[in-house]
Simulated assay, not measured.
Amino acid sequence: MVWFETILVVLTLLTGFIWLLDKLFLAKRRAARSGLLDDEPVLVDYSRAFFPVLAIVLILRSFIAEPYKIPSASMMPNLLIGDFILVNKFAYGLRLPINNKKFISIGEPKRGDVVVFKPPHDPENNWIKRVIGLPGDRISFQGNTLTVNGQAMTYKMLGTYTGRGVAQGTDSAALLEEDLPGRTHKVLEGLDNLVGAGEWEVPAGYYFVMGDNRDNSEDGRLWPEVSPKDGSPIPNHNFLPEKDLRGKAFLIWLNCEGWFCKGSFDASRIGTKIQ
């Protein structure tokens, strides 16, 4: 969340400034006045202790990997409610904390990548979807069949999906394997419920994203034309701007439901690579 990132940056800068100020000036004045080098105020003592920890957390979280928890069923069957995942923060370039501005370009999303981002209509929250369309692609979704640049995807029927935990009740969904160019993966489709039909051409600087749970995902097919907050128009509202990317999801490190994992716990998902 933006507020957590802001607090982390502010605390890191504040404790670092206090520690440096004391190191360069205040400690010498105290020593000259009292003759004691270790006569530190409590604020300086705490700043010196916490600054290295906060700095390490900020660097790891901003530039290496950041943890997230999956809150919804939109990426089932590959990501479940209660999955804790790690997101690679440098796969698509290094970005500044808070404003997410890229300052070093490293790579670009590939078709099939599972990405975390802040959608244009909900910039305060992080979402997760799969990249379906790259800049310049023509995307069509009709009758639960995805078409990319005129090529209809092929599907292999794997059976009927059996939901687990809070996902129980999705047993009527069909479990299929979708042969997306560059990334074969599993998807869920309703047997009698078609959602989000349309055709789109991805503009430069944007991506088209969809959830793997095709009939239960608020993705690029359904994003609003205007901001829910102030009613202002959203340019290219069906698409994810490159500037709003947060990183690439790559690993599940825990799965549990409820506060402090008091709900169900699935050890089999620990260490699962996100495909």
Rank of each mutant, 00 (worst) to 15 (best):
V166F: 14
S140P: 04
V187H: 09
H121W: 08
G263Y: 12
I59W: 06
E225F: 12
Q275I: 07
G112I: 04
L36I: 05
M75G: 07
L158E: 00
W223N: 09
Y161Q: 09
G136V: 01
G198P: 10
Q168K: 15
L180G: 03
G107Y: 01
D215A: 12
E189S: 10
S217G: 11
V57N: 11
Y161E: 08
P119I: 02
Y207D: 00
N236R: 05
I7Q: 12
C256W: 10
K156I: 05
W259M: 09
T12K: 05
L175A: 04
Q151P: 08
D230H: 01
H237E: 04
T272E: 15
L96D: 14
K156R: 07
T272D: 15
W19C: 15
T6R: 07
P77A: 02
Q275R: 15
L13K: 02
K102D: 14
M153H: 04
D38E: 13
H121E: 12
A197F: 14
D179I: 08
E242N: 12
E201C: 06
L194R: 14
S227L: 02
E189Y: 06
D244I: 13
F250V: 00
V131F: 05
D244T: 10
F208Y: 02
L21H: 13
G196S: 07
L21T: 09
R138F: 10
L175P: 03
K28R: 14
V209G: 02
